[in-house]
Structures are given as structure tokens and as C-alpha cells.
């Protein structure tokens, strides 16, 4: 019912035009390419330095009765992180800048495009960007023998879902941001998620209270889902993570388009 309502109001052509603006930015010069390319390296550098480097000191790891190299444990987490950072970079920095300083959306809303179409378009674009990162990252993982090609293919759509969830969340947060100082806060939050979402050590090793707290946050679900697929151990439990991430994506887009309408159409 909600889906039908949304579908009746959302024009794919106009969502496409919102995406087209970002393609236009790529066509307009090198500056956006540089931003795009630079975002790829961070998770890869962590994989090499911590996964492989620190992993050599740690040796193998046994989680849920399965033994793996430390790099194989960390790699899926870095894959989830790169899906997260790709989507967040697009929907926070770029989205906020377009909303607040460049007045891009103000110009767009003078046309037949609606706030929800802006939200969908920007979300899809953030997925395109995130998928570029995760696609290359998966190739690297297969090349390093950290996952099987078949499971890498299965993990790819999961990273798209991770991107959708963080893209929705990022947009929602952007509409609430007051200024650049809030980005420091967000950066800290993002870094905390990065460190404690079962990325570098199994969540079961945390104190019970912390474990519960971590299980409420989104990157944990992203890591668990992606890791389950990359390691080739799918289970019904993964559907719980899927549901969590899908709900986050939906809520984020809905909230962001409401806020856009309130901020720009008053």
C-alpha cells in the first residue's frame, strides 16, 4: 500500500534526471573524479595494514567453530565498511553541500521534481558510487584468496543493500545538520562503528552489555551479513540482518524527503 502510494508519485524519469546531474558533474571536469577515486583506498589500506599486517602476528582465528586467517575475518568487514563509506560520503558531504550551500536542490524543486524524487535519485547515485568501491574490493578479495568467486557474487547484492541502508541514514542525518561542526560529530560516530562493529574482533568477545549495544547499530548487521556470505556460510539468521538494513534504508529515505520538503518548501 505504501509502496503503491510512493510508486504513483515517483517518476522514474525525474529520479533519473536527479542522478543525471551527478553524471553531468563527472562529465564537467576532473574534480569529482578525484573525490570518487580517493574514497576507495581507505578500507583497502586497512585490509592490508591490519588484516594482513597485524594478521601475521595474530595467526588464525576460530569463530563459531570455523578457523580462518585473520585477513579472511577482517576482509568482509572492510567490504561492508567500503559500502558504508561510499554511501555516506555521497549522502552526507555532497548531499549537505548541495542542500545547504550550493542550493542545488532549491533549484531542482522549482521544476516538476519532488523532494522524494531527489531523495531516491541521490540514494541510487550513492549506491552506484558505493558499488564501484565494493565491486573492486571484491575482485581484490578474490585475487588475494580471501573469498570464493561464487560467494563474492552473492556478497555483492548484500553490499548494495548495505549502501542503501547507510545512504538512507546519511541523507536523513544531512537534513538535520546545522553546519560543518556536526560533521566532526558524525565522523566520530562513524569511526566508532568502524572499530567496534565486529570488524576487527568478534562481537562475542565483548562484555554482554556492549555486545547488545553493538547489535543495535547498523554496521554490525552489515558486517555480519556480508561476512556470512563471503565465508560461504549463509543461514536463516542473515535474513534478520537483511530486514534491519532494508528498514533503515526505507526509514532514511522517507525521513529525508519529509525534511527536504520542510526545509526547502516552506
Amino acid at each position: 500500500m505504501v509502496t503503491a502510494l510512493v510508486a504513483s508519485r515517483v517518476s522514474p524519469g525525474r529520479v533519473g534526471a536527479v542522478i543525471g546531474r551527478n553524471v553531468g558533474a563527472l562529465r564537467s571536469g576532473p574534480s569529482y573524479w578525484i573525490i570518487l577515486v580517493s574514497g576507495f583506498f581507505e578500507p583497502l589500506l586497512y585490509l592490508l595494514s591490519i588484516g594482513v599486517g597485524v594478521g601475521a602476528l595474530i595467526g588464525d582465528l576460530t569463530v563459531d567453530g570455523r578457523t580462518m586467517s585473520y585477513a579472511a575475518f577482517v576482509a568482509p568487514a572492510m567490504l561492508a565498511v567500503s559500502a558504508m563509506s561510499g554511501a555516506l560520503a555521497e549522502t552526507t558531504f555532497n548531499f549537505f553541500f548541495k542542500l545547504k550551500y550550493m542550493k542545488t536542490f532549491e533549484a531542482v524543486l522549482a521544476t516538476p521534481v519532488r523532494p522524494i524524487e531527489i531523495a531516491f535519485g541521490e540514494l541510487v547515485w550513492s549506491i552506484v558510487r558505493g558499488s564501484l568501491y565494493t565491486g573492486i574490493f571484491l575482485v581484490v578479495m578474490v585475487a588475494m584468496g580471501l573469498t570464493e568467486p561464487g560467494w563474492a557474487l552473492a556478497a555483492f547484492p548484500a553490499t548494495v543493500l548495505v549502501g542503501l541502508a547507510f545512504g538512507g541514514l546519511g541523507m536523513a542525518i544531512s537534513t538535520l545538520m546545522r553546519g560543518w561542526q556536526d560533521f566532526d560529530l558524525m565522523g566520530t560516530g562513524q569511526f566508532a562503528l568502524f572499530l567496534f562493529s565486529g570488524t576487527f574482533s568478534p562481537v562475542r568477545d565483548y562484555p554482554a552489555a556492549v555486545e547488545v549495544l553493538v547489535q543495535l547499530t547498523p554496521l554490525y548487521h552489515a558486517v555480519e551479513l556480508v561476512r556470512g556470505l563471503c565465508m560461504g556460510v549463509p543461514g536463516w539468521g542473515l535474513l534478520g540482518h537483511v530486514a534491519y538494513l532494508a528498514a533503515l534504508a526505507g526509514a532514511g529515505v522517507w525521513f529525508a524527503s519529509r525534511r527536504l520538503a520542510r526545509v526547502l518548501c516552506d
Binding site: S11, G13, R14, G16, A17, V18, G20, R21, G24, A25, R27, S28, G29, S31, Y32, M102, K103, T104, E106, A107, V108, T111, P112, V113
Partner: peptide, 20 residues
Amino acid sequence: NLDPDLTVRENLVTYARYFG
């Protein structure tokens, strides 16, 4: 509120696309 990320021409092309 022209788009500084886009060229002069791309500003118009992109905008025309919003109108379908």
C-alpha cells in the same frame, strides 16, 4: 543557484532533464 560542479552548458542540459 547555478550548479558550480557543472559546466555552463551542462547546467542547462541537466536542468532540461528535470522537465523530462
